[in-house]
Amino acid sequence: MRLKIKRFHYARDVEEALSLLSAYRGRGAILAGGLDLARSFNPKLEGLIDISGLGLSYVHEQDGGLRIGATTTLTEVLESRAAREYLGGFLAEVVGQVANPPLRNQATFGGAVASAHPWADLPTALVAVGAEVRWVDQEGEHRARVEELWQGEFRRLLSSAVITEIFLPPWEGAFAFGKLSRNVGDIALLNCACGLGIEDGKVAWARVALGATPRRGRRLLWLEDLLTGEAPGEELWQVVREQVEANVEVGADRRASAAWRRAAAGPLLARTLARAAEKATARQR
């Protein structure tokens, strides 16, 4: 694909980025890590607006939650102490499995939210923890849970906006992430993020998201209901295996068949839940 870029802008602030974006009327794009621009380049693009100078590369802890600036690279997230400590290392566990180091040096957290590829790992994790996206457009500042955002026409919405921050809320329990892929650095054939709160030896709450099904990660509310109030343990995980194989909604793409996804989803979820339960129980102690 040939670039027809005529102008390259370093935006000085969000307002400038937005006004430039607006002036291009669809022929301009925000550039952060640039991976998706390079992967599926829009030949109509004439201008690129670099937002790396907006001061949006940071990771801050806030009341047990995490504020991550949109242009923070995945490597910066991995290297940040706050991110490594968030939910007992859950975020680092996820990010460490995304692609490979050179790509993580380039990919940004905001970019992952904006592209929200169905096969990607971060969306599944962000849905599970109930992350919130904050963005600015001509009408002002907005925020929404990723789940809600991705259910709507988010690409159209974000095409005239600048994502500024992603907020990951605090949780009392623990989360674990599971992924099946063909090799290291590959996208997921199936991934999941599972969070559990354990009180008095029972599941007090559950947050379970399954992704790359091949659809984007979404919560399995029925499974969360099934888990709540039950005692974590091999017996429960066996129920999870069986119920998931019987009820999960999966499809086929060129990477994996629906039959395999159906068979593998149960074990993947059961193991990831078991790890989450172990961590949650340990945290409780």
Binding site: R182, N183, V184, G185, R254
Partner: peptide, 16 residues
């Protein structure tokens, strides 16, 4: 051919 790219056609990397 439906996977004529290195994203879909997986060769091992050093990490594998």
């Amino acid at each position: 051919c439906t996977n004529a790219n290195l994203f879909d056609y997986r060769i091992p990397s050093a990490l594998d």
